[in-house]
């Protein structure tokens, strides 16, 4: 929350309380509130925190007989396959690069679409197009891949059908790694445009009409209204979405890359991310230690990135910082 609130209500309530008491006093005083947190507490305990014990797997040569704490400790041995590959740096760079592109481009387009849609007057048009833009979210990447293959397939693909009809040379997309860098972003946007748009649309609907009316009286045109009212008010939403996305910056869009690129090694140079690399490595012989160590590596780098970004934001304007 932001500073003003803390200074007003919060301070008043807190000063009325007895000074500095322990956990038990708080528990006694707010026991209903604690009770209301029980489901969430249980959920995160079971779903997130207790499984974290398993991080220890990353340092063992796992065998089924001895389990988690019985398997021999091997130090950093499990991380070896990551740096041995000689690709760790390029994989990390690809993972982060794609995610940054996804986050920025998708968010900008989502904001743009939300603003434009909110400004149109035909209710029916809005309703239909919103649903259409949302629809790809329900199409899994497995299906998307079937479509992608049928568009770019050299012999009978949709694209080459068009090209040859206009007397042009057919294009061998699957032999051109470079183009996939852009295609992956397009696929991602295609699928996620509608989903993010909803959050922004909801925020825009919440902006008081008085603001726009006042601006109109002052002679602001549409662009100016968007520029000086809508966008600044969307900014906090953008930042929080960004921060949540950043928390997962080391986890790629596995499904997208795995389904669309599949076993086509020719494209790996530009499309391989950590998740697909790890998955491929472990697909035939899944190894608990190696799998966990890769996850831990992602967590640590991700943690480092998020705390850095958070510190930078905090220095600029504390209200926007995540924690």
């Amino acid at each position: 929350m932001s500073r003003p609130e803390r200074m007003q209500g919060g301070a008043a309530v807190q000063s009325a309380l007895p000074r500095k008491k322990g956990f038990l006093d708080e528990l006694k005083r707010n026991k209903i509130l604690f009770v209301m947190l029980i489901p969430t507490f249980v959920y995160f305990l079971l779903n997130s925190y207790m499984p974290m014990v398993g991080i220890y797997f990353a340092f063992t040569r796992y065998n089924f007989r001895d389990g988690l704490f019985g398997s021999p400790f091997v130090g950093l041995e499990n991380f070896k396959f990551l740096y041995k590959s000689g690709k760790l740096f390029s994989l990390t760079a690809n993972t982060i690069g794609y995610n940054v592109a996804f986050i920025l481009i998708a968010n900008i387009l989502q904001v743009a679409m939300a603003i434009i849609l909110s400004r149109l007057s035909s209710k029916l048009f809005k309703r239909i197009t919103q649903s259409i833009i949302f629809l790809p979210y329900f199409v899994s990447y497995v299906i998307l891949n079937v479509i992608v293959y049928n568009i770019f397939n050299y012999e009978v693909g949709f694209l080459n059908g068009l090209l040859t009809r206009f007397g042009m040379e057919p294009y061998n997309a699957y032999g051109e790694p470079g183009i996939w860098r852009y295609l992956m972003v397009i696929f991602y946007v295609w699928k996620n445009l509608g989903y993010g748009m909803v959050v922004y649309l909801a925020t825009i609907t919440g902006i008081s009409n008085d603001l726009y009316e006042a601006a109109e009286i002052d002679g602001a045109n549409v662009i100016q209204q968007i520029r000086y009212i809508t966008i600044p008010l969307l900014f906090p939403t953008f930042v929080i979405l960004l921060m949540f996305a950043l928390g997962r910056i080391m986890r790629g869009q596995f499904d997208l890359f795995y389904q669309v690129i599949g076993n086509n090694g020719v494209l790996y140079e530009v499309t391989d991310i950590l998740d697909t690399f790890v998955f491929r490595t472990l697909k035939q012989d899944f190894d608990v230690g190696m799998s966990t160590s890769a996850g831990l590596f992602q967590s640590i780098v991700g943690f480092f990135i998020i705390t850095t970004v958070n510190a930078l934001i905090k220095r600029k304007d504390e209200a926007y910082a995540l924690f």
Binding site: P51, S299, G302
Partner: peptide, 18 residues
């Protein structure tokens, strides 16, 4: 504490075991 699992997780195997 609620935000933290966004960044850190124990991985698939222990979660599945749980």
């Amino acid at each position: 504490l609620i935000y933290f699992p966004t960044i850190f997780s124990g991985g698939l195997v222990p979660w599945y075991m749980m």
